[in-house]
């Protein structure tokens, strides 16, 4: 009989790890709280830098793990440590005993209503990066005007924001803003697009090319300054204020739509599990890896492994790479017992 490995979270990290564990001859069991696999990626439209359709990735991974055990709409009620493994109790009454456990619970999108000054949930035309992706995917959104003349993107919403409780950079927002700015410009060629940034952190492969494209081919305006406040004008448009830190002057502009680049915070589910089996939490609110250089996929408890954004903000390729590493890590760990 094949050995059970419980994977908490059926996003791309959990799916990729399941795929690798199947190849290695294990029986991966995915516990996913939603009614579908793929996590945040399944809600996304296209992925930078190649504009890969997000659904393709999720579909492909889904096909590759057809032999895995998958519990949808299921959460972990309790985990306790046994002498040589873990007992995982699910809310559907199923109990699984395993020697290795993979946490792949990912991130939660920062709740943009917490940045009250941006008026998400109050003003009619303020949306988030995630709302925009849903709209790209065909979901109706009355907040998006038919023919916007000016659209703004606010970087670092809830990221690099100690007051919001998040010191971390969410890594993907800069390039996502540029990607979405280009996509919006393609949909509305006459619109002027403004990106309000503090730094542009375009570290990944092809990201900088994306930035140059946005400037050169799409005429996206980049304004270095964090939006300080947004007000709704009488016609529903948004009056946005920022400091143009390059000009050293305050700047204002009236926009038809504002997109907030909500950052990543740790999924509260991970925090809950960490409490049950005494996993260390980092001061950024994510799970703490054994170390952040060589052992990102390892926890402080034997047999508990991590993959993806449960330990910090991650891109899709980083998440997939970690999931593979975690599968190998689990295999090596079990063989060493």
């Amino acid at each position: 009989m094949k050995e059970n490995i419980v994977i908490i979270g059926g996003g791309i990290a959990g799916m990729e790890a399941a795929k690798q564990l199947l190849c290695l001859g294990y029986n991966p069991i995915i516990v996913e709280q939603n009614d579908h696999l793929g996590g945040h990626v399944s809600q996304w439209h296209q992925l930078f830098p190649d504009m890969t359709p997000a659904q393709d990735l999720v579909r492909r991974l889904g096909e590759e793990i057809s032999e895995a055990n998958i519990f949808l709409e299921t959460t972990v009620s309790y985990v306790n440590k046994l002498k040589d493994g873990y007992n995982v109790m699910l809310n559907n009454g199923v109990n699984i005993v395993c020697r290795a456990l993979l946490i792949a619970s990912g991130f939660k999108l920062f709740d943009a209503t917490k940045k009250e000054e941006y008026g998400y949930g109050v003003y009619d035309r303020v949306i988030t990066n995630s709302d925009l992706e849903a709209w790209f995917n065909g979901k109706q959104d009355p907040r998006i005007p038919d023919k916007p003349a000016r659209v703004g993107f606010v970087h670092c919403v809830g990221s690099r924001d100690l007051k919001a409780g998040n010191s971390q950079c969410s890594k993907v927002c800069c390039v996502t803003a540029i990607k979405q700015a280009i996509e919006v410009k393609e949909k509305f060629p006459d619109a002027e697009i403004y990106c309000f940034y503090m730094d542009l952190r375009l570290f990944g492969k092809k990201y900088e090319d994306f930035y140059i494209n946005a400037q050169r081919d799409f005429g996206v305006h980049f304004i270095r300054g964090r939006v300080s406040e947004v007000g709704e004008a009488i016609d529903g448009r948004l009056q946005v204020k920022a400091e143009d830190t390059l000009a050293g002057k305050p700047l204002k502009v009236t926009l038809d739509m504002l997109v907030l680049m909500s950052g990543m915070v740790c999924n509260p589910q991970a925090t809950e599990i960490a409490r049950m089996i005494h996993l260390d939490m980092d001061d950024d609110g994510f799970l703490r890896s054994r170390d952040n250089v060589y052992s990102i996929i390892e926890s402080n408890r034997p047999g508990v492994f991590y993959a993806g954004a449960c330990t910090g903000t991650k891109t899709v390729p980083e998440t997939v790479a970690e999931a593979r590493a975690a599968a190998l890590g689990i295999d090596a760990y079990l063989k060493s017992l």
Binding site: T113, G121, D124, E232
Partner: peptide, 10 residues
Amino acid sequence: MIYQGKQKIW
């Protein structure tokens, strides 16, 4: 303006 949004903040 979404009144319920303000009520939530209030």
